[in-house]
Design a protein around this nucleic acid. Sequence first.
DNA 1: TTAATACAGGATAAATTTGTCTTAAAATAA
DNA 2: TTATTTTAAGACAAATTTATCCTGTATTAA
Lengths: 144, 144
Amino acid sequence: MFSKACEYAIRATLHIAQESLKGRRVGLKEIAEAIDSPVAFTAKILQILSRNNIVQSLKGPTGGFEIEHGQIAHTKLSQIVFAIDGDKIYQGCGLGLSKCDAEKPCPVHFQFVAIRDEMQRMLEETSVLELAEGLEQGLTFLKR
Amino acid sequence: MFSKACEYAIRATLHIAQESLKGRRVGLKEIAEAIDSPVAFTAKILQILSRNNIVQSLKGPTGGFEIEHGQIAHTKLSQIVFAIDGDKIYQGCGLGLSKCDAEKPCPVHFQFVAIRDEMQRMLEETSVLELAEGLEQGLTFLKR
DNA sequence: TTAATACAGGATAAATTTGTCTTAAAATAA
DNA sequence: TTATTTTAAGACAAATTTATCCTGTATTAA
């Protein structure tokens, strides 16, 4: 569904959010450990998230990653997905046609639009805060 | 959503179905032309579809690919997707966890299950016949 | 000021997916 | 039977994605 990079991005963001809510800043290695991801690759992804201002990074001792408190409730999954994978999840024909729309649709155009719309709605409605709370309550998990 | 291979597979199958309904057998080159796909790669995919008995192939002059008439109405998109991409579309955690279920879910488990179930239902309900008919009626297109 | 710590960024490498090429095998028709 | 046509299959190559490594830069605390 998503690229590996995007999966790591969501997991990393949720872990940072969870720690930020507790007033803690987290380092790269701690993040990679918490979400069970390759450290160096995770660093690349965090760079992108930082450039897109989805997370904030601070260098030096006591540095690390965090998310502004006020931001956590407003950041939606859709922003993370868009930062990493772009809009190809919403755009783009399900059968790979270079162009495909209601005027001149591929054979599965309308079926796919229905599912993609639901996916988009879900990503835009789901906030980092609510998911981080599920983690904090021990209801959900970031690695297994 | 799907791999390139899977996209070609669906497009190729639909073209073969469309021609089979008209009593015509189609060669590899004609298929690749009709769906605008790389010939040699399409050949590989057709091999897989043939081995999985989703299409039938015949060698030699007048040979080519076809689908048994009785089969066209019964073949569902899900069979094509499964033959090429396996069950990783239905299985597998949305965030890439090695294990993820209702007992110990990832943070987006239930949101993803809902969307995946709808996708699965759609793939299992959509037949090659109905899509080939849309093509034959000029309502839908396999290349653009 | 200096040493240590932690992220940033570029180069590089491994793995996977996508795609090509060549030869073999099968089948038809002359 | 033989020449021709067409798919089958394996080896190979290109492109993309995933992942690593090394050096630079910023920051903090002593």
